[in-house]
Amino acid sequence: MTIANSGLLDGLIAASIEAGRIILDVYARPIDVAFKADASPVTEADGLAEAALLAALERLVPGVPVIAEESVAAGRVPPTAGRFFLVDPLDGTKEFIRRNGEFTVNVALIEQGAPVMGVVHAPVGGRLFAGGPDGAWEMAVTADGVGQRRPIHVRDLPAEGATLLTSRSHATAATEAFRPAVAVAGRRVIGSSLKFCLIAAGEADVYPRFGPTMEWDTAAGDAVLRAAGGMTTLADGTPFPYGKRGRPGLADFANPSFIAASDRRLVAFSHNPV
């Protein structure tokens, strides 16, 4: 039986907003940066926001496992079987450090290998995206409160061609070489999981990723995109799964290449990037 319901989504939204407030408090003062074993940066905001999210999830759904980025880095990895949360308390830490505003709070519920509910909150700019079994929404978050939910849905492919999104900090030659089977009218560069959400909101069309990511980087945005009528697939067009563990030579929860898109036609491309 699924636990994905409107009450849980409301709780995830509230928890993400609180984590966003914590992040903005740190963002307002000088940022101290440390580095994890994999050389990726981490800040005080990552840890404080994750602690708040873990506490909120335990209140909302006690006992459901949570795979959270900083906890995993510290060696705290609970067993997962069928249902669990994926949490990235600060997706886009490099963008946070650069102070360009392109970072998010990501929370997603995974059931049977698929993201069935997710929230992506961009504290700078106050955009919050949420998706679940009843559809996808965007709402504004300001110091005065939360605005009304506005339903969002992927758009039909524009006659002039698709808008393609690429990562600000992780672009690769394979991504630059990507050519979908339909025309591309323009490209945008943006950080964090906002790329999934812009496709979900009908502001762009396809996001190819041929570099490394982890499941907590993608799950929340993927949930919003799927709820808005889009899709995320492996590079060969097959389903994109979650809960990937125990693979020889691969880190647990590491993602292969993928394509997030508004339309199945965008998943096909004219050559095979490597």
Rank of each mutant, 00 (worst) to 15 (best):
162 A>K: 14
163 T>L: 14
163 T>E: 11
163 T>V: 13
163 T>I: 15
164 L>F: 04
164 L>G: 00
165 L>S: 06
165 L>V: 06
165 L>H: 09
166 T>P: 01
167 S>F: 11
168 R>A: 12
168 R>N: 10
168 R>Q: 11
169 S>R: 04
170 H>G: 10
170 H>T: 15
171 A>E: 12
171 A>Q: 11
171 A>G: 11
171 A>W: 08
172 T>Q: 08
172 T>F: 06
172 T>L: 11
173 A>Y: 10
174 A>H: 06
175 T>C: 14
175 T>L: 14
175 T>H: 12
175 T>D: 15
175 T>N: 15
175 T>P: 10
176 E>F: 11
177 A>T: 12
178 F>Q: 12
178 F>M: 13
179 R>P: 03
181 A>D: 10
181 A>C: 13
181 A>M: 10
183 A>S: 12
183 A>F: 01
183 A>N: 11
183 A>R: 14
183 A>M: 00
183 A>W: 04
184 V>P: 08
184 V>W: 09
185 A>H: 04
186 G>S: 14
186 G>R: 09
186 G>A: 08
186 G>P: 03
187 R>T: 08
187 R>F: 07
189 V>R: 07
189 V>Q: 01
190 I>V: 09
190 I>K: 00
191 G>W: 06
191 G>L: 07
191 G>V: 10
191 G>K: 02
192 S>G: 08
192 S>R: 08
192 S>N: 09
193 S>M: 02
193 S>R: 00
194 L>N: 02
194 L>W: 07
195 K>Y: 03
